[in-house]
């Protein structure tokens, strides 16, 4: 898997265009989030303004698609062939957890695994692609593509800066990732669906609504309860998985070798 690509490298102009697409994708997601928080409707007694729904859907989806188009062609084939494996893990575990009624998701194990082995860009692309492909089976996950991309990106950054070198630091990184992912995903749940799709998460939102919170505030608080715990467990499971892999397998990934992602003696690259 560590072999060099046998195809010609992309020209500099194409690389610049892809960087521009990635930047535009990130700007689209950030701008949509800020717009939604600033313009959230104060009165929802006559239904949610569908303008907010359309902005949330359009802005977050556009950002996710730009990220996919920008990142996907840059990934080496060894990483690309792992993405379908990650997506199937996300879908299988996410559906099992969704049927339990517990306020957790567990739908990012594959995304975080790819991010740890192949880096933030691969993680972001895997997260966004996971939502797009999963939407063929469950369309309600499609609007959350931007949040899934953020989880993959942050997991890759955590791996890049050595948070997977100590087993106890991985859940901490997951906890922080969960806070940010929950804050980004809450406006989508509020403005696109008017609530959460799970019965367990719905019960928590109901409790906050009973205390008089607005819909966005209640869903954000629910996300801040569920997401950090969920991602802390997911990061710990992925840490367990990557350390259980034979070292030779884990070190086949250039990102793992280059940034010394896993604990242990630093390995020189084979072609150095």
């Amino acid at each position: 898997m560590s072999q060099q690509s046998r195809t010609l490298p992309a020209p500099a102009q194409a690389v610049r265009n892809r960087r521009l697409l990635e930047a535009l994708g990130a700007v689209s997601i950030a701008a949509t989030f800020i717009f939604l928080v600033l313009t959230q409707p104060a009165d929802i007694t006559n239904g949610l303004a569908s303008g907010s729904t359309l902005v949330a859907l359009g802005g977050f989806l556009l950002g996710a698609i730009l990220l996919i188009v920008g990142v996907l062609p840059t990934l080496p084939t060894s990483t690309l062939v792992l993405i379908p494996v990650a997506l199937v893990l996300n879908i299988a575990l996410g559906q099992i957890m969704g049927s339990t009624g517990l306020p957790f998701y567990f739908d990012a194990i594959g995304t975080v695994l790819i991010a740890v082995l192949a880096g933030p860009a691969a993680g972001a692309a895997t997260g966004a692609l996971s939502s797009v492909v999963w939407s063929f089976i469950n369309p309600t996950v499609l609007p959350f593509a931007a949040g899934a991309a953020l989880i993959g990106f942050l997991a890759g950054v955590a791996a890049r800066y050595g948070l997977f070198r100590r087993f106890y630091l991985a859940p901490v990184a997951g906890f922080v990732t969960g806070i940010l992912a929950g804050v980004v995903s809450a406006p989508i749940a509020a403005f696109v669906f008017g609530g959460t799709s799970g019965v367990g998460t719905g019960a928590i939102v109901s409790a906050f609504r009973a205390m008089g919170d607005t819909l966005l505030a209640a869903i954000t608080k629910q996300a801040l309860i569920s997401d950090p715990m969920d991602k802390a467990i997911v990061f710990a499971v992925v840490a367990m998985l990557v350390y259980a892999l034979p070292r030779r397998t884990a070190l086949q990934f250039p990102f793992v070798r280059r940034f010394n992602v896993l604990a242990g003696k630093k390995q020189e690259t084979p072609d150095a």
Partner: peptide, 12 residues
């Protein structure tokens, strides 16, 4: 979930 959330608790 919608029925529990909004049918039983809707402060507005």
């Amino acid at each position: 979930s919608l029925l529990v959330m909004h049918g039983l608790f809707f402060p507005e």
